[in-house]
Amino acid sequence: MIADLVFLAVLLLGLKWIKPLAGIDFSWARLGQKEQQILIAVVAASLLGWLSILIHNDFRGFSEPKPDTKTVRGK
């Protein structure tokens, strides 16, 4: 998980270098106002969801979903 966060930080810091490497030609201003607002809401919700998972896992990373093996339906 720490490696992911480091990678993300490097990515953000190196965006100027990465954009031409990846052929990224994306301009925030070219999106409509409504689309921008929706994207901001999506990013905010996603970051909070990610943070919740990280806190729950004590910042160790994502755990595999644990199967509920209590009952067999119809049995």
Binding site: D4, F7, L8, L11, S46, L47, G49, W50, H56, F62
Partner: peptide, 22 residues
């Protein structure tokens, strides 16, 4: 692949908590 791993986790985190990112 590395960028995809991070982006996938981030955009998946909106969905279903623990289940979303994978």
């Amino acid at each position: 692949l590395c960028l995809g791993r991070i982006v996938g986790r981030l955009i998946g985190a909106l969905l279903l908590g623990q289940e979303g990112p994978p």
